[in-house]
């Protein structure tokens, strides 16, 4: 049916009393998500959008049986709140905020992996399972239930691809934003593996962009372990080169994460490389996806 979220996912919203946190809680509830509580230190005992607010994550977990959390916490406080959430036993965390210092992300990532927590972001729109629920900010109107998985580095492009597919009567099993930052909490290959093992996903679309080496590394995983069809689009062919990480980055990676380099790696792994987003409709038709 889906990856990451299912019928037993019970979500808390951290930073629920903020402007964005409360607005997004409204949209998540409206989409049918089981939002069972919220956390804002100092606001415990109140309610937001009809949802009880707690002072700590541990209290929220004890009172509501929550097992997943979505963050609308100001960037400067995310590291602290993230560690608290892991220690409270939550196993799925979505970090929506942008502008979190890389140093903090490195610590978050290392602790999450050590504790077996699946975390997405930072700068992610989250996860959406069409017709079932969502953790994050994806606008529901663009999605439709079906059997195609989407993983995107860019939030807005995940909406674009889901929207094009939905207009062409092709639905999605789960849509996952992995986060747009240079360091994210989970690598692309880990999410691909979940889709490969999901009996309700028939094919996967990877929406990447210039920079980094997520797509190149995922190509190795696809070649070795994926049996399902994969298509990929890489944004940024004509983008100015401003994101180069100095010599050290280029030396470690062997390339600067160019669109051409990513295309070559993905093609060699048997991935269908899409030149433009709209080509995803033809690919879905060719593979008889629905």
């Amino acid at each position: 049916m889906s990856i990451l979220m299912n019928d037993s996912t019970r979500v808390i919203v951290q930073g629920i009393t903020g402007r964005i946190g409360s607005a997004q809680t409204h949209w998540m509830l409206e989409y049918g998500t089981r939002v069972v509580g919220g956390v804002t230190p100092g606001k415990g005992g109140t309610t937001t959008e009809g949802v009880p607010v707690f002072n700590s994550v541990l209290e929220a977990v004890k009172q509501t049986g929550a097992n997943a959390s979505v963050f609308f916490v100001p960037a400067a406080f995310v590291l602290d709140a993230f560690l608290e959430t892991i220690d409270a036993g939550i196993k799925l965390i979505v970090i929506v905020p942008e502008h979190i210092p890389v140093k903090d992300v490195l610590r978050m990532r290392s602790y999450a992996i050590e504790k077996g927590v699946f975390a997405l972001g930072p700068t992610t729109p989250g996860i959406l399972v069409p017709g079932m629920g969502k953790m994050g900010i994806m606008p529901a109107s663009l999605f439709a239930p079906g059997r195609v998985g989407i993983i995107s580095r860019s939030g807005t492009l995940s909406y674009e691809f889901a929207g094009i597919l939905s207009e062409n009567k092709v639905g999605q099993s789960t849509v996952v934003g992995m986060g747009a930052d240079p360091v994210v909490l989970r690598n692309l290959a880990d999410i691909l593996e979940l889709f490969e093992n999901d009996k309700d996903t028939d094919a996967v679309i990877v929406v990447g962009e210039v920079g980094g080496e997520q797509e190149e590394k995922a190509a190795g995983f696809i070649a070795r372990q994926m049996t399902k069809p994969v298509a990929a689009y890489i944004a940024g062919r004509y983008s100015p080169q401003g994101k180069k990480m100095g010599h050290a980055g280029a030396i470690v990676r062997g390339s600067a994460g160019t669109v051409t380099g990513k295309h070559e790696a993905l093609k060699a792994a048997g991935v269908e490389v899409l030149e433009s987003p709209i080509d995803v409709a033809k690919w879905a038709k060719k593979n008889k996806l629905k």
Partner: peptide
Amino acid sequence: SGAGLGMA
């Protein structure tokens, strides 16, 4: 309204 969408 997003870097990926802007690049595309």
